[in-house]
Nucleic acid binder design. Sequence first.
DNA 1: ATCATTTCGCTTGTATGCAAGAAATAATTG
DNA 2: CAATTATTTCTTGCATACAAGCGAAATGAT
Lengths: 233, 233
Amino acid sequence: MTESSEPASHHQPHVIENRIVYAALSGYIAPGERLGEKELSEIFKVSRTLVREAMIRLQARGIVEVMPRRGWFVIEPTVEEARNTINARRALEVGMLATADHVTPEKIAILREHVRNEQRALEEDDRAQRSYLLGHFHVCLAETIGNPVLGSILQDLTTRTVLIAALYQSSHDAHESCDEHSQIIDALEAGEPMEAVRLMDMHLKHVEKALNYRDIASRMESLKSVLQKGPSL
Amino acid sequence: MTESSEPASHHQPHVIENRIVYAALSGYIAPGERLGEKELSEIFKVSRTLVREAMIRLQARGIVEVMPRRGWFVIEPTVEEARNTINARRALEVGMLATADHVTPEKIAILREHVRNEQRALEEDDRAQRSYLLGHFHVCLAETIGNPVLGSILQDLTTRTVLIAALYQSSHDAHESCDEHSQIIDALEAGEPMEAVRLMDMHLKHVEKALNYRDIASRMESLKSVLQKGPSL
DNA sequence: ATCATTTCGCTTGTATGCAAGAAATAATTG
DNA sequence: CAATTATTTCTTGCATACAAGCGAAATGAT
Protein backbone atom coordinates (compact mmCIF):
# COMPACT_ATOMS: atom_id res chain seq x y z
CA MET A 1 0.00 0.00 0.00
CA THR A 2 2.88 2.36 0.70
CA GLU A 3 4.58 1.63 -2.56
CA SER A 4 1.48 1.63 -4.80
CA SER A 5 1.55 -0.39 -7.99
CA GLU A 6 5.03 -0.73 -9.38
CA PRO A 7 4.72 -2.53 -12.71
CA ALA A 8 7.32 -5.26 -12.58
CA SER A 9 10.99 -4.27 -12.81
CA HIS A 10 12.31 -2.68 -9.66
CA HIS A 11 15.15 -0.97 -11.47
CA GLN A 12 15.67 2.65 -10.64
CA PRO A 13 14.23 4.36 -13.69
CA HIS A 14 10.80 2.84 -13.16
CA VAL A 15 10.95 3.63 -9.47
CA ILE A 16 11.64 7.29 -10.19
CA GLU A 17 8.93 7.36 -12.81
CA ASN A 18 6.32 5.82 -10.53
CA ARG A 19 7.22 8.00 -7.60
CA ILE A 20 6.69 11.10 -9.65
CA VAL A 21 3.37 9.89 -11.02
CA TYR A 22 2.26 9.00 -7.53
CA ALA A 23 3.37 12.37 -6.24
CA ALA A 24 1.42 14.11 -8.98
CA LEU A 25 -1.72 12.09 -8.30
CA SER A 26 -1.44 12.83 -4.61
CA GLY A 27 -0.94 16.52 -5.13
CA TYR A 28 2.58 16.55 -3.76
CA ILE A 29 3.95 18.09 -6.91
CA ALA A 30 2.15 20.83 -8.75
CA PRO A 31 1.86 21.76 -12.42
CA GLY A 32 4.74 23.91 -13.57
CA GLU A 33 7.04 22.55 -10.89
CA ARG A 34 10.61 22.16 -11.97
CA LEU A 35 12.24 18.74 -11.76
CA GLY A 36 15.98 19.21 -11.99
CA GLU A 37 18.04 16.27 -13.14
CA LYS A 38 20.76 16.91 -10.62
CA GLU A 39 18.28 17.40 -7.81
CA LEU A 40 16.57 14.09 -8.55
CA SER A 41 19.84 12.25 -9.08
CA GLU A 42 20.85 13.25 -5.56
CA ILE A 43 17.51 12.25 -4.10
CA PHE A 44 17.57 8.84 -5.72
CA LYS A 45 21.34 8.41 -5.45
CA VAL A 46 21.84 7.62 -9.11
CA SER A 47 23.49 9.34 -12.01
CA ARG A 48 21.71 11.83 -14.22
CA THR A 49 21.48 9.18 -16.91
CA LEU A 50 18.83 7.23 -15.07
CA VAL A 51 16.94 10.31 -14.03
CA ARG A 52 16.93 11.39 -17.63
CA GLU A 53 15.57 8.03 -18.68
CA ALA A 54 12.68 8.41 -16.27
CA MET A 55 11.98 11.94 -17.48
CA ILE A 56 11.93 10.83 -21.08
CA ARG A 57 9.37 8.20 -20.22
CA LEU A 58 7.27 10.71 -18.33
CA GLN A 59 7.51 13.03 -21.30
CA ALA A 60 6.24 10.26 -23.58
CA ARG A 61 3.35 9.83 -21.19
CA GLY A 62 2.52 13.52 -21.34
CA ILE A 63 3.19 14.20 -17.70
CA VAL A 64 6.30 16.35 -17.91
CA GLU A 65 7.74 18.48 -20.65
CA VAL A 66 11.19 19.81 -21.32
CA MET A 67 12.31 23.31 -22.14
CA PRO A 68 15.62 23.05 -23.96
CA ARG A 69 18.55 23.76 -21.65
CA ARG A 70 16.13 25.07 -19.04
CA GLY A 71 14.84 21.98 -17.43
CA TRP A 72 12.03 19.53 -16.98
CA PHE A 73 8.68 20.77 -15.76
CA VAL A 74 5.43 19.19 -14.76
CA ILE A 75 2.94 20.00 -17.50
CA GLU A 76 0.77 23.10 -17.35
CA PRO A 77 -1.89 22.27 -19.89
CA THR A 78 -3.54 25.10 -21.76
CA VAL A 79 -7.31 25.36 -21.72
CA GLU A 80 -7.49 23.58 -25.04
CA GLU A 81 -5.19 20.79 -23.93
CA ALA A 82 -7.24 20.41 -20.78
CA ARG A 83 -10.42 20.04 -22.80
CA ASN A 84 -8.79 17.57 -25.13
CA THR A 85 -7.57 15.45 -22.28
CA ILE A 86 -10.97 15.30 -20.63
CA ASN A 87 -12.71 14.61 -23.92
CA ALA A 88 -10.28 11.80 -24.61
CA ARG A 89 -11.18 10.37 -21.23
CA ARG A 90 -14.83 10.73 -22.05
CA ALA A 91 -14.43 8.80 -25.28
CA LEU A 92 -12.38 6.11 -23.64
CA GLU A 93 -14.44 5.62 -20.52
CA VAL A 94 -17.78 5.84 -22.30
CA GLY A 95 -16.61 3.33 -24.90
CA MET A 96 -15.21 1.11 -22.22
CA LEU A 97 -18.49 0.97 -20.33
CA ALA A 98 -20.50 0.57 -23.51
CA THR A 99 -18.45 -2.32 -24.88
CA ALA A 100 -17.83 -4.11 -21.58
CA ASP A 101 -19.51 -7.43 -21.16
CA HIS A 102 -21.21 -8.61 -18.01
CA VAL A 103 -19.54 -7.44 -14.84
CA THR A 104 -19.13 -10.30 -12.41
CA PRO A 105 -19.88 -9.90 -8.70
CA GLU A 106 -16.19 -10.35 -7.97
CA LYS A 107 -15.39 -7.32 -10.05
CA ILE A 108 -18.17 -5.32 -8.45
CA ALA A 109 -16.67 -6.21 -5.10
CA ILE A 110 -13.28 -4.85 -6.11
CA LEU A 111 -14.83 -1.57 -7.19
CA ARG A 112 -16.91 -1.30 -4.03
CA GLU A 113 -13.80 -1.84 -1.99
CA HIS A 114 -12.12 0.98 -3.82
CA VAL A 115 -14.97 3.37 -3.15
CA ARG A 116 -14.89 2.32 0.49
CA ASN A 117 -11.25 3.40 0.58
CA GLU A 118 -12.21 6.70 -0.99
CA GLN A 119 -14.80 7.23 1.73
CA ARG A 120 -12.29 6.43 4.43
CA ALA A 121 -9.85 8.97 3.03
CA LEU A 122 -12.67 11.49 2.99
CA GLU A 123 -13.59 10.85 6.61
CA GLU A 124 -10.00 11.02 7.74
CA ASP A 125 -9.50 14.13 5.64
CA ASP A 126 -6.35 12.62 4.14
CA ARG A 127 -5.92 15.02 1.22
CA ALA A 128 -3.15 13.14 -0.55
CA GLN A 129 -4.81 9.76 -0.31
CA ARG A 130 -8.14 11.29 -1.30
CA SER A 131 -6.71 12.86 -4.41
CA TYR A 132 -4.89 9.68 -5.32
CA LEU A 133 -7.86 7.40 -4.83
CA LEU A 134 -10.37 9.61 -6.61
CA GLY A 135 -8.13 9.61 -9.65
CA HIS A 136 -7.17 5.99 -9.35
CA PHE A 137 -10.80 4.87 -9.34
CA HIS A 138 -10.90 5.33 -13.06
CA VAL A 139 -7.73 3.30 -13.53
CA CYS A 140 -9.17 0.62 -11.30
CA LEU A 141 -12.38 0.61 -13.32
CA ALA A 142 -10.46 0.33 -16.58
CA GLU A 143 -8.39 -2.57 -15.29
CA THR A 144 -11.39 -4.32 -13.81
CA ILE A 145 -13.98 -4.15 -16.53
CA GLY A 146 -11.43 -3.61 -19.27
CA ASN A 147 -7.84 -4.77 -19.48
CA PRO A 148 -4.30 -3.63 -18.65
CA VAL A 149 -3.92 -1.74 -21.90
CA LEU A 150 -6.92 0.41 -21.11
CA GLY A 151 -5.68 0.74 -17.57
CA SER A 152 -2.31 2.14 -18.51
CA ILE A 153 -3.81 4.62 -20.96
CA LEU A 154 -6.22 5.81 -18.34
CA GLN A 155 -3.44 6.07 -15.80
CA ASP A 156 -1.79 8.71 -17.91
CA LEU A 157 -5.00 10.55 -18.67
CA THR A 158 -6.16 10.66 -15.06
CA THR A 159 -2.75 11.82 -13.89
CA ARG A 160 -2.96 14.65 -16.34
CA THR A 161 -6.51 15.39 -15.24
CA VAL A 162 -5.42 15.67 -11.63
CA LEU A 163 -2.73 18.13 -12.69
CA ILE A 164 -5.29 20.06 -14.70
CA ALA A 165 -7.59 20.19 -11.70
CA ALA A 166 -4.74 21.52 -9.58
CA LEU A 167 -3.79 24.10 -12.18
CA TYR A 168 -7.31 25.37 -12.72
CA GLN A 169 -8.20 25.13 -9.06
CA SER A 170 -11.04 22.73 -9.48
CA SER A 171 -13.87 23.33 -7.12
CA HIS A 172 -15.24 19.85 -7.65
CA ASP A 173 -16.41 18.42 -4.39
CA ALA A 174 -14.69 15.23 -3.39
CA HIS A 175 -17.82 13.82 -1.77
CA GLU A 176 -19.74 14.36 -4.95
CA SER A 177 -17.09 12.56 -6.97
CA CYS A 178 -17.15 9.65 -4.59
CA ASP A 179 -20.94 9.44 -4.78
CA GLU A 180 -20.83 9.48 -8.53
CA HIS A 181 -18.32 6.66 -8.55
CA SER A 182 -20.65 4.70 -6.36
CA GLN A 183 -23.61 5.30 -8.64
CA ILE A 184 -21.66 4.13 -11.66
CA ILE A 185 -20.98 0.86 -9.89
CA ASP A 186 -24.66 0.60 -8.99
CA ALA A 187 -25.58 0.83 -12.65
CA LEU A 188 -23.01 -1.79 -13.59
CA GLU A 189 -24.23 -4.11 -10.88
CA ALA A 190 -27.82 -3.65 -12.02
CA GLY A 191 -26.77 -4.71 -15.50
CA GLU A 192 -27.51 -1.32 -17.00
CA PRO A 193 -24.33 -0.35 -18.84
CA MET A 194 -26.01 2.46 -20.72
CA GLU A 195 -27.01 4.08 -17.47
CA ALA A 196 -23.39 3.71 -16.36
CA VAL A 197 -22.35 5.46 -19.56
CA ARG A 198 -24.74 8.31 -18.86
CA LEU A 199 -23.49 8.67 -15.31
CA MET A 200 -19.86 8.62 -16.40
CA ASP A 201 -20.57 11.25 -19.01
CA MET A 202 -22.17 13.44 -16.36
CA HIS A 203 -19.34 12.78 -13.94
CA LEU A 204 -16.78 13.99 -16.45
CA LYS A 205 -18.93 17.00 -17.27
CA HIS A 206 -18.92 17.87 -13.58
CA VAL A 207 -15.18 17.49 -13.42
CA GLU A 208 -14.73 19.84 -16.32
CA LYS A 209 -17.35 22.31 -15.17
CA ALA A 210 -15.59 22.64 -11.83
CA LEU A 211 -12.50 24.05 -13.52
CA ASN A 212 -11.91 27.77 -13.50
CA TYR A 213 -10.48 28.13 -16.92
CA ARG A 214 -9.89 31.81 -16.28
CA ASP A 215 -7.57 31.22 -13.41
CA ILE A 216 -4.38 31.19 -15.38
CA ALA A 217 -5.20 34.37 -17.23
CA SER A 218 -6.46 36.10 -14.13
CA ARG A 219 -3.44 34.95 -12.17
CA MET A 220 -1.13 36.49 -14.73
CA GLU A 221 -3.25 39.62 -14.85
CA SER A 222 -3.19 40.13 -11.11
CA LEU A 223 0.52 39.48 -10.96
CA LYS A 224 1.06 41.97 -13.73
CA SER A 225 -1.04 44.67 -12.09
CA VAL A 226 0.61 44.08 -8.74
CA LEU A 227 4.02 44.51 -10.28
CA GLN A 228 2.96 47.59 -12.19
CA LYS A 229 0.95 49.40 -9.54
CA GLY A 230 3.13 48.57 -6.60
CA PRO A 231 5.12 51.34 -4.97
CA SER A 232 8.76 51.52 -5.93
CA LEU A 233 10.92 50.17 -3.16
CA MET B 1 3.93 13.25 -47.71
CA THR B 2 7.24 11.47 -47.86
CA GLU B 3 8.14 12.20 -44.30
CA SER B 4 4.74 11.57 -42.73
CA SER B 5 3.80 13.56 -39.65
CA GLU B 6 6.81 14.51 -37.60
CA PRO B 7 5.46 16.16 -34.48
CA ALA B 8 7.47 19.34 -34.18
CA SER B 9 11.07 19.11 -32.99
CA HIS B 10 13.36 17.74 -35.67
CA HIS B 11 15.96 16.59 -33.21
CA GLN B 12 17.40 13.18 -33.83
CA PRO B 13 15.64 11.14 -31.16
CA HIS B 14 12.20 12.01 -32.51
CA VAL B 15 13.33 11.36 -36.05
CA ILE B 16 14.54 7.89 -35.12
CA GLU B 17 11.36 7.23 -33.19
CA ASN B 18 9.11 8.29 -36.03
CA ARG B 19 11.07 6.41 -38.64
CA ILE B 20 10.69 3.21 -36.70
CA VAL B 21 6.98 3.71 -36.18
CA TYR B 22 6.56 4.45 -39.84
CA ALA B 23 8.58 1.40 -40.77
CA ALA B 24 6.43 -0.75 -38.52
CA LEU B 25 3.20 0.66 -39.94
CA SER B 26 4.48 0.05 -43.46
CA GLY B 27 5.53 -3.48 -42.74
CA TYR B 28 9.22 -2.80 -43.25
CA ILE B 29 10.08 -4.11 -39.83
CA ALA B 30 8.45 -7.19 -38.39
CA PRO B 31 7.52 -8.25 -34.88
CA GLY B 32 10.41 -9.83 -33.04
CA GLU B 33 12.96 -8.00 -35.15
CA ARG B 34 16.03 -6.94 -33.27
CA LEU B 35 16.96 -3.27 -33.21
CA GLY B 36 20.57 -3.01 -32.13
CA GLU B 37 21.72 0.24 -30.60
CA LYS B 38 25.02 0.20 -32.44
CA GLU B 39 23.38 -0.70 -35.72
CA LEU B 40 20.93 2.20 -35.46
CA SER B 41 23.57 4.62 -34.24
CA GLU B 42 25.54 3.94 -37.43
CA ILE B 43 22.47 4.29 -39.63
CA PHE B 44 21.50 7.61 -38.09
CA LYS B 45 25.08 8.76 -37.51
CA VAL B 46 24.58 9.55 -33.86
CA SER B 47 25.82 8.11 -30.61
CA ARG B 48 24.11 5.28 -28.83
CA THR B 49 22.76 7.77 -26.31
CA LEU B 50 20.26 9.22 -28.74
CA VAL B 51 19.29 5.85 -30.11
CA ARG B 52 18.69 4.71 -26.58
CA GLU B 53 16.49 7.71 -25.93
CA ALA B 54 14.37 6.84 -28.93
CA MET B 55 14.10 3.21 -27.85
CA ILE B 56 13.01 4.21 -24.37
CA ARG B 57 10.26 6.33 -25.87
CA LEU B 58 9.17 3.51 -28.12
CA GLN B 59 9.15 1.22 -25.14
CA ALA B 60 6.89 3.62 -23.27
CA ARG B 61 4.60 3.55 -26.28
CA GLY B 62 4.49 -0.23 -26.23
CA ILE B 63 6.12 -0.69 -29.61
CA VAL B 64 9.44 -2.20 -28.63
CA GLU B 65 10.61 -4.08 -25.59
CA VAL B 66 13.99 -4.72 -24.11
CA MET B 67 15.55 -7.97 -22.97
CA PRO B 68 18.24 -7.11 -20.45
CA ARG B 69 21.70 -7.20 -22.02
CA ARG B 70 20.23 -8.92 -25.03
CA GLY B 71 18.79 -6.08 -26.98
CA TRP B 72 15.74 -4.21 -28.16
CA PHE B 73 13.06 -6.03 -30.07
CA VAL B 74 9.89 -5.08 -31.83
CA ILE B 75 7.02 -6.41 -29.73
CA GLU B 76 5.58 -9.87 -30.32
CA PRO B 77 2.29 -9.64 -28.49
CA THR B 78 0.82 -12.77 -26.99
CA VAL B 79 -2.71 -13.75 -27.92
CA GLU B 80 -4.00 -12.12 -24.76
CA GLU B 81 -2.09 -8.91 -25.36
CA ALA B 82 -3.37 -8.84 -28.90
CA ARG B 83 -6.95 -9.15 -27.71
CA ASN B 84 -6.42 -6.47 -25.10
CA THR B 85 -4.99 -4.08 -27.65
CA ILE B 86 -7.87 -4.56 -30.05
CA ASN B 87 -10.43 -4.28 -27.27
CA ALA B 88 -8.81 -1.07 -26.10
CA ARG B 89 -9.16 0.23 -29.62
CA ARG B 90 -12.78 -0.84 -29.68
CA ALA B 91 -13.53 1.06 -26.50
CA LEU B 92 -11.69 4.13 -27.68
CA GLU B 93 -13.03 4.28 -31.20
CA VAL B 94 -16.57 3.40 -30.25
CA GLY B 95 -16.57 6.00 -27.52
CA MET B 96 -15.02 8.54 -29.84
CA LEU B 97 -17.73 8.08 -32.45
CA ALA B 98 -20.46 8.01 -29.85
CA THR B 99 -19.38 11.20 -28.10
CA ALA B 100 -18.37 13.17 -31.19
CA ASP B 101 -20.52 16.11 -32.08
CA HIS B 102 -21.62 17.01 -35.57
CA VAL B 103 -19.04 16.25 -38.24
CA THR B 104 -18.63 19.20 -40.57
CA PRO B 105 -18.41 18.76 -44.34
CA GLU B 106 -14.79 19.89 -44.21
CA LYS B 107 -13.95 17.03 -41.90
CA ILE B 108 -15.84 14.58 -44.07
CA ALA B 109 -13.79 15.82 -47.01
CA ILE B 110 -10.53 15.11 -45.18
CA LEU B 111 -11.64 11.57 -44.41
CA ARG B 112 -12.84 10.99 -47.96
CA GLU B 113 -9.49 12.14 -49.23
CA HIS B 114 -7.77 9.66 -47.00
CA VAL B 115 -9.88 6.78 -48.26
CA ARG B 116 -9.13 7.89 -51.81
CA ASN B 117 -5.44 7.55 -51.01
CA GLU B 118 -6.10 4.10 -49.63
CA GLN B 119 -7.82 3.14 -52.88
CA ARG B 120 -4.95 4.46 -54.95
CA ALA B 121 -2.47 2.40 -52.94
CA LEU B 122 -4.69 -0.62 -53.50
CA GLU B 123 -4.82 -0.07 -57.25
CA GLU B 124 -1.10 0.47 -57.52
CA ASP B 125 -0.52 -2.54 -55.28
CA ASP B 126 1.82 -0.48 -53.10
CA ARG B 127 2.00 -2.82 -50.10
CA ALA B 128 3.86 -0.50 -47.79
CA GLN B 129 1.69 2.50 -48.49
CA ARG B 130 -1.41 0.35 -48.28
CA SER B 131 -0.49 -0.99 -44.86
CA TYR B 132 0.44 2.46 -43.64
CA LEU B 133 -2.73 4.14 -44.87
CA LEU B 134 -5.12 1.45 -43.66
CA GLY B 135 -3.68 1.81 -40.20
CA HIS B 136 -3.40 5.55 -40.34
CA PHE B 137 -7.06 5.97 -41.23
CA HIS B 138 -7.94 5.42 -37.61
CA VAL B 139 -5.42 7.99 -36.47
CA CYS B 140 -6.80 10.41 -39.04
CA LEU B 141 -10.32 9.75 -37.84
CA ALA B 142 -9.32 10.32 -34.22
CA GLU B 143 -7.61 13.60 -35.05
CA THR B 144 -10.45 14.78 -37.24
CA ILE B 145 -13.53 14.04 -35.17
CA GLY B 146 -11.63 13.91 -31.92
CA ASN B 147 -8.50 15.75 -30.89
CA PRO B 148 -4.71 15.35 -30.84
CA VAL B 149 -4.73 13.47 -27.55
CA LEU B 150 -7.01 10.81 -28.97
CA GLY B 151 -4.90 10.81 -32.11
CA SER B 152 -1.66 10.05 -30.39
CA ILE B 153 -3.18 7.28 -28.30
CA LEU B 154 -4.63 5.71 -31.39
CA GLN B 155 -1.33 6.06 -33.19
CA ASP B 156 0.25 3.72 -30.69
CA LEU B 157 -2.63 1.29 -30.66
CA THR B 158 -2.88 1.05 -34.44
CA THR B 159 0.86 0.59 -34.76
CA ARG B 160 0.64 -2.30 -32.37
CA THR B 161 -2.36 -3.67 -34.24
CA VAL B 162 -0.41 -3.65 -37.49
CA LEU B 163 2.38 -5.56 -35.77
CA ILE B 164 -0.15 -8.00 -34.37
CA ALA B 165 -1.62 -8.50 -37.82
CA ALA B 166 1.84 -9.21 -39.18
CA LEU B 167 2.63 -11.63 -36.38
CA TYR B 168 -0.60 -13.56 -36.66
CA GLN B 169 -0.64 -13.43 -40.43
CA SER B 170 -3.91 -11.61 -40.74
CA SER B 171 -5.96 -12.68 -43.70
CA HIS B 172 -8.04 -9.56 -43.59
CA ASP B 173 -8.65 -8.31 -47.07
CA ALA B 174 -7.40 -4.80 -47.70
CA HIS B 175 -10.26 -3.99 -50.04
CA GLU B 176 -12.74 -4.96 -47.38
CA SER B 177 -11.03 -2.74 -44.83
CA CYS B 178 -11.09 0.16 -47.22
CA ASP B 179 -14.78 -0.36 -47.94
CA GLU B 180 -15.55 -0.46 -44.26
CA HIS B 181 -13.70 2.79 -43.72
CA SER B 182 -15.79 4.32 -46.45
CA GLN B 183 -19.02 3.11 -44.90
CA ILE B 184 -18.09 4.57 -41.55
CA ILE B 185 -17.65 7.94 -43.19
CA ASP B 186 -21.01 7.52 -44.93
CA ALA B 187 -22.70 7.04 -41.59
CA LEU B 188 -20.97 10.07 -40.13
CA GLU B 189 -21.95 12.19 -43.10
CA ALA B 190 -25.54 11.00 -42.82
CA GLY B 191 -25.54 12.17 -39.23
CA GLU B 192 -26.00 8.68 -37.86
CA PRO B 193 -23.21 8.30 -35.32
CA MET B 194 -24.72 5.16 -33.82
CA GLU B 195 -24.57 3.48 -37.18
CA ALA B 196 -20.93 4.54 -37.39
CA VAL B 197 -20.37 2.96 -34.01
CA ARG B 198 -21.95 -0.28 -35.19
CA LEU B 199 -19.84 -0.32 -38.32
CA MET B 200 -16.63 0.40 -36.41
CA ASP B 201 -17.43 -2.37 -33.98
CA MET B 202 -17.92 -4.77 -36.89
CA HIS B 203 -14.78 -3.52 -38.58
CA LEU B 204 -12.69 -4.29 -35.53
CA LYS B 205 -14.35 -7.66 -35.15
CA HIS B 206 -13.31 -8.44 -38.72
CA VAL B 207 -9.77 -7.34 -38.01
CA GLU B 208 -9.58 -9.65 -35.03
CA LYS B 209 -11.34 -12.54 -36.70
CA ALA B 210 -8.81 -12.44 -39.53
CA LEU B 211 -6.00 -13.28 -37.14
CA ASN B 212 -4.71 -16.81 -36.94
CA TYR B 213 -4.05 -16.98 -33.28
CA ARG B 214 -2.63 -20.46 -33.69
CA ASP B 215 0.16 -19.35 -35.94
CA ILE B 216 2.74 -18.77 -33.30
CA ALA B 217 2.17 -22.12 -31.66
CA SER B 218 2.01 -23.92 -34.98
CA ARG B 219 5.12 -22.16 -36.16
CA MET B 220 7.01 -23.34 -33.12
CA GLU B 221 5.60 -26.83 -33.51
CA SER B 222 6.63 -27.13 -37.13
CA LEU B 223 10.07 -25.78 -36.40
CA LYS B 224 10.44 -28.26 -33.61
CA SER B 225 9.38 -31.23 -35.71
CA VAL B 226 11.60 -30.15 -38.57
CA LEU B 227 14.57 -29.99 -36.28
CA GLN B 228 13.75 -33.32 -34.68
CA LYS B 229 12.80 -35.34 -37.75
CA GLY B 230 15.37 -33.91 -40.10
CA PRO B 231 18.24 -36.14 -41.25
CA SER B 232 21.53 -35.57 -39.55
CA LEU B 233 23.83 -33.62 -41.85
C1' DA C 1 18.84 56.47 -13.71
C1' DT C 2 17.81 53.58 -17.65
C1' DC C 3 18.80 50.67 -21.20
C1' DA C 4 21.91 47.81 -23.86
C1' DT C 5 25.70 44.57 -23.56
C1' DT C 6 28.69 41.24 -21.76
C1' DT C 7 30.06 37.85 -18.55
C1' DC C 8 29.28 34.10 -15.77
C1' DG C 9 26.90 30.29 -13.54
C1' DC C 10 24.01 26.60 -13.87
C1' DT C 11 21.21 23.49 -16.59
C1' DT C 12 20.51 20.21 -20.08
C1' DG C 13 22.41 17.78 -24.57
C1' DT C 14 25.45 14.44 -26.40
C1' DA C 15 29.37 11.46 -26.75
C1' DT C 16 32.34 8.23 -24.79
C1' DG C 17 34.34 4.78 -21.64
C1' DC C 18 34.10 0.98 -18.95
C1' DA C 19 31.63 -2.70 -16.43
C1' DA C 20 28.25 -6.52 -16.30
C1' DG C 21 26.13 -10.18 -18.51
C1' DA C 22 24.23 -13.29 -22.02
C1' DA C 23 25.01 -16.22 -25.92
C1' DA C 24 28.04 -18.41 -28.98
C1' DT C 25 32.31 -20.65 -29.63
C1' DA C 26 36.19 -23.26 -28.28
C1' DA C 27 38.46 -26.30 -25.15
C1' DT C 28 38.39 -30.02 -21.90
C1' DT C 29 37.20 -34.25 -19.89
C1' DG C 30 34.83 -38.67 -18.98
C1' DC D 1 32.05 -38.87 -29.33
C1' DA D 2 29.01 -36.47 -26.08
C1' DA D 3 28.57 -33.48 -22.48
C1' DT D 4 30.31 -30.14 -19.71
C1' DT D 5 33.11 -26.28 -18.77
C1' DA D 6 35.94 -22.32 -19.99
C1' DT D 7 36.63 -18.43 -22.90
C1' DT D 8 35.66 -15.14 -26.02
C1' DT D 9 32.70 -11.85 -28.19
C1' DC D 10 29.22 -8.89 -28.51
C1' DT D 11 25.43 -6.56 -26.34
C1' DT D 12 23.28 -3.34 -23.22
C1' DG D 13 23.61 -0.67 -18.45
C1' DC D 14 25.30 3.13 -16.21
C1' DA D 15 28.42 6.83 -14.97
C1' DT D 16 31.09 10.52 -16.29
C1' DA D 17 33.13 14.34 -19.02
C1' DC D 18 32.62 17.98 -21.75
C1' DA D 19 30.00 21.11 -25.00
C1' DA D 20 26.22 24.30 -25.82
C1' DG D 21 22.87 27.57 -24.48
C1' DC D 22 19.59 30.01 -21.68
C1' DG D 23 19.04 33.50 -17.95
C1' DA D 24 20.52 36.32 -14.40
C1' DA D 25 23.79 39.33 -12.71
C1' DA D 26 27.33 42.48 -13.54
C1' DT D 27 29.11 45.96 -16.46
C1' DG D 28 29.18 49.79 -19.33
C1' DA D 29 27.24 53.59 -22.22
C1' DT D 30 24.04 57.31 -22.88
